[in-house]
């Protein structure tokens, strides 16, 4: 009987290292109230979104959503993260690509989802015009900070600005 059960156990799928790591990362997230995850399919831990609602800084009042896609080679490969909205930010381009070092060139398997999320939030507290992805926004930020602040505020309400249509990202 034991032999048969053993044989049956061998046939079954094993929990992959990536799965265990993601479960560990997610259940041990230590997020401030300004960040919230959402799982469109709660059974799928590999695809979800993160919404950041900064409570200070120039992006205060907005709710910014990022999609996370984790592949089976995690944590060797970093999660793929994109902003799902069109926003005006020096480090996020109009396609939603994000310039955050730990998402690409500085990713290491010892980092985890929490580090990525905290890194993303930091971009809203301290946008970095020295590593621009949206060059125009970065230029504005260094040259004319007041104008930049205005642009941030107005684009967060949505609508056209310099022939780009931005999404309304005001927190409800």
């Amino acid at each position: 009987m034991k032999k048969n059960e053993d044989a049956a156990a061998k046939k079954k799928p094993k929990t992959s290292a990536a799965q265990i790591r993601v479960q560990k990362d997610l259940t041990e997230l230590d997020l401030p109230a300004t960040m919230k995850t959402n799982f469109p399919d709660p059974a799928d831990l590999l695809n979800f979104t993160l919404t950041i609602t900064p409570d200070e800084g120039m992006y205060k009042g907005g709710a910014f959503t990022f999609s996370f896609a984790i592949n089976t080679n995690y944590p060797h490969d970093p999660p793929k993260v994109k902003c799902t909205q069109t926003i005006y930010h020096p480090n996020v381009d109009l396609e939603g690509n994000v310039c955050l070092n730990i998402l690409r060139e500085d990713w290491k398997p010892v980092l985890n989802l929490n580090s990525v999320m905290v890194g993303l939030q930091y971009l809203f507290l301290e946008p970095n015009p020295d590593d621009p992805l949206n060059k125009e926004a970065a230029l504005e930020m260094t040259k004319n900070r007041d104008q930049f602040l205005n642009n941030v505020k107005s684009t967060m309400r949505g609508g056209y600005f310099k022939s780009v249509q931005y999404d309304n990202v005001l927190a409800r």
Binding site: K12, S16, Q19, Q23, L29, K36, F39
Partner: peptide
């Protein structure tokens, strides 16, 4: 503890949405 099988989550302590779902 959070528990899962190779094919499904049994009970996750967090995040709140997954805790609720499981």
């Amino acid at each position: 503890p959070s528990l899962s099988t190779p094919t499904k989550q049994l009970y996750l302590q967090a995040p709140p949405q997954l805790e609720q779902a499981t």
